[in-house]
């Protein structure tokens, strides 16, 4: 059953990003496979954990840094719970990469606005690193919303991005002592922000965030084709057969997970409400 057969990969390192998120640094056991493996920003892998089946997890790393891949996983259910209990040296199964990636060629030379909520920064982290490593992209701005200061993930990356000229702006829903940054949902970071054309915004986060963010970005003058998001769905096969990730007449695994607003407007996407 080759198409469903995972490649085994070793956890070489685990980075705790926040109380719910861990980044797993992985290396395929088969050295040749590891060497030739490649993927693009926005794609995902089906991850196997012993006795837990499989779940789709997007790359949080960039293929510009070969040798290992990184998957950032939020503790959410049975499989992710079991994965969080694994230690460095343990094996997981991986198959992929799957899905339509961000069109990095089309984004070249553009000013890029990244907007992320919670674990939504994981796939965008891969894209940001890809842009920084490759070069040839315009000014990069990141708006990142977390529940509280303790929930801010990828802090090391954010520090590095700042050093590399990325304009990183953070907000928290609820402040704790010592927080002197923005308080409120991530959309509050949009006020006063100006992104010059050519430009695109890449957004990823919980459906409720996307739902409020899309009209805000439209109001700022972003065209539908300039607003790009990645959708999340329950998936079993990853290759367009099992049916679970249906999104109107599309399947998120093979027609997505990356969609722009122009595409989404042609579909009935229940969690995003009426897109106008």
């Amino acid at each position: 059953m080759t198409m469903y057969l995972p490649q085994m990969a070793k956890i070489v390192k685990i980075i705790r990003e926040n109380p719910q998120i861990k980044t797993f640094v992985l290396e395929f056991r088969d050295k040749e496979y590891n060497k030739s493996f490649s993927y693009e920003p926005g794609q995902f892998m089906m991850v196997s954990v012993p006795h837990c089946g499989e779940a789709p997890i997007s790359f949080s790393s960039s293929s510009t840094r070969p040798g290992t891949i990184e998957l950032s996983v939020r503790l959410a259910g049975k499989l992710t719970g079991a994965m969080h209990r694994l230690q460095p040296g343990a094996m997981v199964g991986l198959r992929g990469p799957y899905g339509i990636p961000f069109n990095m060629k089309e984004l070249a030379d553009q000013n890029l606005l990244f907007v992320a909520g919670g674990i939504g920064l994981a796939p965008l982290r891969g894209v940001i690193n890809y842009c920084l490593d490759k070069g040839g992209y315009g000014r990069i701005t990141l708006l990142y919303g977390s529940r509280s200061p303790d929930d801010i993930a990828f802090k090391t990356d954010i520090d590095l991005w700042r050093k590399n000229g990325v304009d990183c702006r953070l907000s928290v829903d609820t402040a704790t002592e010592g927080w002197d940054g923005q308080v409120g949902v991530v959309t509050t970071l949009l006020s006063g922000l100006e992104i010059e054309r050519p430009r695109s915004s890449l957004v990823c986060g919980p459906p409720i965030m996307i739902r409020f963010l899309l009209p805000e970005l439209s109001r700022m003058g972003f065209r539908d084709r300039e607003i790009i998001t990645t959708m999340e769905r329950h998936m079993k096969c990853g290759i367009g057969v099992c049916g679970h990730c249906h999104l109107d007449n599309r399947l998120v695994c093979v027609d997505g997970p990356v969609f722009d607003l122009a595409q989404l407007k042609e579909l009935a996407v229940e969690e995003l409400g009426e897109l106008t």
């Binding site: 959410a76 049975k78 499989l79 459906p207 769905r233 099992c242 049916g243 679970h244 249906h246 229940e270």
Partner: peptide, 21 residues
């Protein structure tokens, strides 16, 4: 691999309980 049905409420339910349908 087991038969499933899109009419089941669990068909689209994601880890953590959110169901987009």
């Amino acid at each position: 691999r087991q038969w499933d049905s899109c009419t089941f409420s669990g068909f689209t339910r994601m880890a953590g309980g959110h169901n987009p349908v």
